[in-house]
């Protein structure tokens, strides 16, 4: 069953570049991309997740609803990945507008914005399957 995250979480909208063929994804796949447990799209291209600053409430909403983890857990996870030499965290941007601009400019990007954020040209939402 397809459940748009915007409908379920009432606060977060997952977005990709309009050229991305994906219209829907499982929650696990979204989490794996943002935690870099999976790094590629089905097409084989390397995904570029982009995060938001931990000062923004949408970051907490995203962590709770999509990653099913507290932001503090995610911070610890990235410390472990960095210092074991396994991966570095996605870039953190400081506003929904910056995320939209980044996703519009990067065909392989995936990001998230607050539910009420109007999407600009070149961006599309992704429905997240529970």
């Amino acid at each position: 069953m397809l459940v748009p995250v915007v409908g379920r979480a009432e606060a977060v909208k997952v977005v990709v570049n309009a050229a991305n063929p994906s219209d829907s994804m499982t929650r696990e796949k979204v989490a794996d991309l943002f935690l870099k447990k999976a790094t590629r799209w089905e097409s084989g291209r390397v995904a570029t997740p982009v995060d938001q600053s931990d000062k923004r409430s949408v970051r907490g909403e995203f962590s709770q609803k999509l990653l099913v983890k507290e932001v503090a857990w995610v911070k610890s996870y990235w410390q472990k990945m960095i210092f074991s030499g396994r991966a570095t965290p996605p870039a953190e941007l400081s506003s929904d507008g910056e995320v939209l601009e980044f996703v519009r400019a990067n065909p392989d990007a995936i990001g998230y914005v607050s539910e009420g954020t109007p999407l600009t040209a070149g961006i599309k939402p992704v429905a997240v399957k529970d």
Partner: peptide, 9 residues
């Protein structure tokens, strides 16, 4: 083992 010295973990 991989984060032997990282105190914040």
């Amino acid at each position: 083992g991989e984060v032997f010295d990282v105190g914040t973990l």
